[in-house]
Design a binder for these strands. Structure first.
Length: 106
DNA sequence: TCCTTGACGGAGA
DNA sequence: ATCTCCGCCAAGG
C-alpha cells in the first residue's frame, strides 16, 4: 500500500458516503463494496475517522451491519451520530435504526 | 519485522 | 434477541 493508493481508497470511500441520501443509511461493509473495496469494512471506519470535524460528508449515515451505531453507547461521538440521524428523520431506537432506512442503492 | 489496535462482519451458542 | 469468538487487513508503535 503506497500513500497514493491509500489516498485513492479514502477518496473512493468518501465519495460513496457523500452519495447516501438524507433519510437513508448504509453499512461499513456495503460502503466498502460500493467503493470497490470488498472486505475492507474496517478500512471504511478508518477513512471516516480521517474526515475533518466540519465536513459536509454524512459520515453519520454509516452504521454497522446490525443497524447499530459503532461507538460506545452514550459516548460523545455516539450521541452526535444519533442526533444527526434523528435530524435526518431516521428512527433510532435502542441504538438501532429501523431496517426500512437501510439498503440504499444508487 | 513483529505485535497491537480498530467507527467491521459473520458464525455459533 | 444478545453475546462471544474468530477472521480480516491496513496503520501505527
Amino acid at each position: 500500500m503506497t500513500v497514493t493508493q491509500a489516498n485513492e481508497r479514502i477518496q473512493a470511500i468518501w465519495f460513496v458516503v457523500s452519495q447516501i441520501p438524507k433519510g437513508k443509511v448504509s453499512s461499513y461493509g456495503q460502503v466498502a463494496r460500493m467503493a470497490g473495496l470488498p472486505g475492507l469494512s474496517r478500512y471504511v471506519g478508518y477513512a471516516l475517522k480521517q474526515l475533518p470535524e466540519e465536513t459536509e460528508i454524512p459520515w453519520f449515515r454509516v452504521l454497522n451491519s446490525q443497524g447499530r451505531i459503532s461507538f460506545p453507547t452514550g459516548s460523545p461521538a455516539y450521541l452526535r451520530q444519533q442526533s444527526q440521524l434523528i435530524l435526518d428523520g431516521v428512527e433510532v431506537q435502542q441504538g438501532k435504526v429501523n431496517l426500512k432506512h437501510f439498503g440504499w442503492a444508487p
